[in-house]
Nucleic acid binder design. Structure first.
Lengths: 349, 349
DNA sequence: TTTTGGCACTCATAACATCAGAGTGCTAAC
DNA sequence: GTTAGCACTCTGATGTTATGAGTGCCAAAA
């Protein structure tokens, strides 16, 4: 059981998985001997298939229906059998076309990334919007909406814009607000939000601040503006691709997936977990740890700006997914976005 | 044919439609005589049903399957038979709960409105985001991202925030930018965007501007910032409710609807058309003029701020929809949002 | 020892026939 | 004008059978 698969078994497993990915039909021994360059009789293939089933790489829906890959089968395939295709010219072009328009803001760019993923991969595209705390401070502006209400507009080095409505304890004059703005912009420029927050805490604790009411107000205001209470956001494009998959013709199952997409929460958690990983990460079925995705796979890659990892993006679809073409699409998109975001920053400095 | 329906026929039509809305099953003559206070034999009902079918209000899927309402049937029902329920306490409460959190920005509020519609009505909620040009100018800020790139942050009286990246022909110093900002904020405060644009055009034409380079730049910049090239946006919540409807169990049809939602374009057009209408508007089936919605109905109502209509919101679902409960939900939500937005403005002045 | 041809067996799927039930339309009687 | 009754239609459920794809196993061949 723990003994490794022979080369021949591996080859057959590979062919079965690729055939199943292509057709969505259980693969029989005969299909293998006919369609592919395997010089074996169907009986020999059957023996190997029985072995692969026993070891857990394959399963049969019923006696006379051929075999389909298990999660473990896909995992082995991805880890050891997969040969990743290079993107062809057309695919690269198709991805890049999404960014030809000039003057895209960061949020637009991320949306385009999700669209690109969805349309090129033909699965659902996901892009996680950078968490505030991983971004770098560029500029803050306060807009007074009413005596006790201020809108903080906060711009990160990478060009993201965040708005936040702040309720004030005490009234501030326009002049005070301006002073605060200037002070904060000087003090925090170039700091990461985490650094900025740390500095705020430090300076607020520092007694010096006690003497300067304005400073104290400034810190209060900025700490209110920089608290990131949002749960994170994900840009989802191409939900409808799920409806094309024969494995999700079950409406009940489909509904659960769409609902999960709508809540976004689960996807945020999922993508968060992928954030740490270097390169392309692949989660298959139960590895996602969500039952609604038990027949899905998630392929993700992190993207970054000049100051490090910003977020991650990827594609979700059925486990029966052409990994060899999807992986480079995700990889290429993540790199492209990273390059663009780093370029943006160059302009900014 | 053109002769009107007798009272009895109308009553029977009403019962059939309501029964069909409740059960999603074709309604037979017997169901009517049993379940409802109609003192007629099934044979008499059959006569009436034949008449209603001939006149186009009903259709029969096949000989032995009872009748279902046609589009014309629904239209007649909505126009003349419908008695609109009042919202009960729970429903009102459920809608209002979405706004209890303080410090909601306009965009958050609109999202909540869409969620509220979706969760209370159990159909898909739609909210059209106000077009820039119907809003009132409050404040503009320019943030210099690079020598030739400026981010314009534009805040409307109703608290909406719009960002736009502007490419400059010529470099501007921070000081110049500040002057421009001040000038524009003074000049355009309280103007509607249409008025503001008109003024820009007028002043740019005016020869006085020729002498003052700074002014000219100001106008250029603001006109770039105020051009609304976005196609309009719609906030959609509760797509998954469509998957609950038995009439859309056809995956192909379902997919077309979800795709249409994803593109948003069609929905923008649809909602745009409803914008002019006073009160609640109802579009049934082909009245939407989109084939993918041939079995859907759209119920909308406009919402407004103090300065007039801002946008519209509503619900889309199958034509077989409990109009009497959905209509007041849409109506109430639109009024509530309008009230809140007008309140927001009070705070702002 | 490995491979393969052959054969019995299993099971899903499609095709077909049958039947019950729901509903209609029509006619004659009330 | 209303209704009871009846013949008729059509769907959907049920059951039966045939087909065929695919397996497992065994004995013979390599």
């Amino acid at each position: 059981m723990a003994e490794p698969l022979s080369e021949r078994s591996q080859k057959i497993l590979e062919v079965i998985i690729e055939e199943y990915i292509a057709t969505a039909q259980p693969v029989g021994s005969r299909a293998i001997t006919q369609n592919h360059a395997i010089n074996l009789s169907s009986a020999s293939v059957r023996n190997v298939m029985a072995e692969l089933e026993e070891k857990g790489y394959l399963a049969s829906p019923h006696t006379s229906a051929g075999r389909i890959p298990t999660e473990m089968g896909y995992r082995f395939y991805v880890d050891t059998l997969l040969r990743i295709n290079d993107l062809n010219y057309q695919q690269k072009d198709q991805i890049e076309q999404h960014y030809h328009r000039r003057g895209l803001q960061m949020s637009d760019m991320l949306r385009e990334a999700s669209r690109a993923l969805s349309s090129v991969a033909h699965y659902t595209g996901l892009v996680m919007v950078p968490r505030l705390k991983v971004t770098v401070f560029r500029q803050i502006e306060f807009v007074k909406l009413s005596p006790r209400q201020v809108l903080a507009v906060f711009i990160t080095q990478s060009g993201m814009v965040q708005n936040k409505l702040i309720q004030l304890d005490e009234e501030l004059t326009g002049q005070e607000l301006e002073q605060i703005t200037n002070y904060l912009n000087q003090t925090m420029k170039g700091l990461s939000i985490q650094e900025a927050q740390a500095r705020i805490v430090a300076e607020m604790a520092h007694e010096k601040a006690l003497y300067d009411q304005l400073l104290q107000r400034a810190f209060k205001l900025s700490s209110a503006a920089l608290i990131d209470e949002t749960t994170g956001d994900v840009i989802i494009e191409g939900t409808s691709h799920f409806l094309e998959q024969p494995e999700f013709s079950d409406l009940e199952c489909m509904k659960r997936i769409v609902q999960t997409f709508e809540q976004k929460r689960t996807l945020v958690d999922l993508l968060d977990r992928s954030l740490q990983t270097e390169g392309v990460q692949i989660l298959i079925g139960s590895e996602t740890e969500y039952s609604e995705f038990s027949d899905c796979s998630l392929i993700t890659a992190a993207y970054s700006g000049r100051h490090g990892t910003l977020g991650c993006l990827g594609v979700i679809g059925p486990s029966r997914m052409p990994y060899s073409t999807i992986i480079p699409i995700v990889d290429y998109t993540a790199n492209l976005i990273s390059r663009l975001l780093e370029g943006e920053q160059d302009l900014g400095e």
